[in-house]
């Protein structure tokens, strides 16, 4: 087992790198798959591991998109004038301006989204269960509505970003695929370590019985704020990359898309299995593949089918793939009776 693990991860990494060349026609879809994976994994940090089911994580995606765009533009031009011209094409970016703007924009998106989560958390983490879900949903809808009335960032028209330098559009596709892939892989490595720490054990305690966790002296609010901020950091970066990939985006349907992507990530996690490392990833792949394969055959009914999928997943398959496995094969997840003579006391996995 122990020898197989590094081989498995190396093979996986090789596959991730090779994927856009194995299926060159699906580069954009593969990049989108990474968005799903990143958003699902970060949603699970609070939803699955901490027991705080947010319906508003999309807020960080939209905010990240806007922050990255505004920072990226502002290193070269006045943002208000730029958005006023609404993609008139008179604003040219040099390669340096483009990449430097994007890099600074993504960093700003991550950091500021973490900050937003911290501030918002002070208000919302006093709410439990359904109130938290509705409160976060409300925050996300409100953010979208407010931004769509904010003329400085383009109002309801949104922002048109500069196009990727060069004429070969395939280069842009590859660039954004790898940018998403790096973010996703970093997030995975981070979470793989994060879930083994004492900190993660503490947020699990909050999920299972917050009152008990408080009675045991855990600084619950601080732990919740840190966890949500980390999640928001990665979502913000993913949103920022999406903005540059899409070139043009607008507030309600693309950035703060509460009822599309905002709810997809929850469904992905439920499909794969809440509160596990691999569940959100498997769920995201499953959901994305099903969506891409069936979407075009549904002739306008795809959104209805999506609603139905949410209902069916929630009602009949809420434990997800991993939850189902844990029920069928509990011994795979380390449940066992150990006799006393084996006092070597091996640490639990």
């Amino acid at each position: 087992m122990t020898i197989l693990r590094p081989i498995f991860y190396l093979a996986l990494l090789a596959f991730i790198i090779a994927a856009p060349f194995i299926a060159p026609d699906f580069r954009t879809q593969l990049a989108t798959l990474w968005i799903f994976i990143i958003l699902s994994m970060t949603w699970d940090m609070t939803g699955g591991q901490m027991g705080y089911n947010s319906l508003g994580n999309i807020l960080f995606y939209g905010a990240g998109m806007y922050i990255a765009a505004v920072v990226g533009i502002s290193i070269a031009y006045n943002v208000g004038e730029y958005t006023n011209a609404a993609g008139g094409g008179i604003y040219k970016f040099t390669d340096t301006q483009y990449f430097l703007g994007m890099a600074l924009g993504l960093i700003a998106a991550g950091v500021l989204c973490a900050g937003i989560a911290w501030v918002l958390g002070y208000l919302l983490f006093g709410l439990r269960g359904p109130y938290f879900a509705i409160g976060t949903l409300g925050a996300a809808i409100a953010a979208g509505e407010l931004v769509s009335n904010w003329e400085w960032v383009g109002g309801g028209q949104g922002i048109a970003l500069p196009v990727f330098p060069g004429d070969d559009y395939e280069n842009a596709k590859l660039f954004f695929y790898y940018l998403f892939a790096v973010t996703g892989v970093v997030l995975f490595i981070f979470l793989r370590w994060f879930y083994t720490t004492r900190f993660a054990a503490a947020i699990n305690a909050i999920r299972d019985d917050e009152e008990k966790a408080e009675a045991m002296g855990l600084h619950t609010l601080r732990y919740k704020l840190i966890t949500w901020s980390i999640a928001a950091f990665f979502v913000g970066i993913a949103g920022g990359i999406s903005g540059y990939q899409l070139i043009h985006f607008e507030p309600l349907e693309t950035a703060f898309q509460t009822i599309n992507l905002g709810i997809f990530m929850v469904v992905c996690v439920l499909l794969g299995g809440k509160g596990t490392l691999w569940g959100p990833i498997i769920g995201a792949i499953l959901f994305h593949v099903v969506k891409e394969v069936t979407w075009n055959y549904l002739l306008g009914w795809q959104w209805v089918a999506l609603g139905a999928l949410i209902v069916i997943t929630v009602v009949y398959f809420q434990d997800g793939l991993m939850g189902w496995l844990a029920r069928v094969k509990p011994e795979w997840f380390g449940e066992r009776v150990t006799e006393k003579p084996a006092l070597a006391g091996e640490p639990a996995e």
């Binding site: 089911n53 009822i259 709810i263 999506l306 609603g307 949410i310 209902v311 009602v315 809420q318």
Partner: peptide, 19 residues
């Protein structure tokens, strides 16, 4: 079931009805 289940299920219904 727990409250998030009913919340999410009715959210799914809301999307369906609206569409």
């Amino acid at each position: 079931r727990d409250l998030f289940t009913s919340l999410l299920a009715t959210f799914g219904l809301a999307i369906m009805f609206a569409q």
